[in-house]
């Protein structure tokens, strides 16, 4: 899942770079235009509405995440998801299955990408 920046609409204001927690939007040399590396973007959507000119759009095939949960049967409690999460949403004790606090989760999917046990279930629209 990813977003992209329409070059014709980008005004170089840097709002996307501010919004992105992963430092993905990168400027050109004179900072008049930004670009999102589609390979690195996880499609969390934090930048989508920050652009004053509506230049940020979902890439073809992008689907929004509706919910993220942890499969207790697969989770080994390694806490990698918790360490990746900016919102402190995965909660639990080491070596016991973790659970996602839905009130904190902002549905970026970073935890699912990080999990080595395929224990995180992502529901898309």
């Amino acid at each position: 899942m990813a977003f992209y920046i329409d070059k014709n609409e980008c005004l170089g204001c840097g709002a996307c770079a501010f919004a992105c927690l992963y430092n993905i939007p990168a400027p050109n040399e004179d900072k008049t235009c930004y670009e999102i590396d589609g390979e690195k973007c996880i499609g969390c959507g934090q930048c989508e509405n920050i652009c004053p000119n509506g230049a940020i759009k979902p890439a073809p095939g992008h689907r929004r995440i509706l919910k993220v949960t942890i499969d207790k049967n697969k989770c080994i409690g390694c806490s990698l998801c918790a360490r990746k999460c900016f919102a402190n949403a995965p909660q639990g004790k080491i070596k016991e299955p973790f659970e996602i606090d839905q009130s904190k989760c902002f549905k970026c999917g970073a935890c699912a990408l990080a999990c080595k046990k395929d224990a995180i279930i992502v529901e898309y629209e």
């Binding site: 005004l11 170089g12 204001c13 840097g14 709002a15 770079a17 501010f18 004179d30 900072k31 008049t32 920050i50 004053p52 000119n53």
Partner: peptide
Amino acid sequence: IRNAACTTCVIR
């Protein structure tokens, strides 16, 4: 050398 802008600024 070049313009600069506050974050979110379209005037630069």
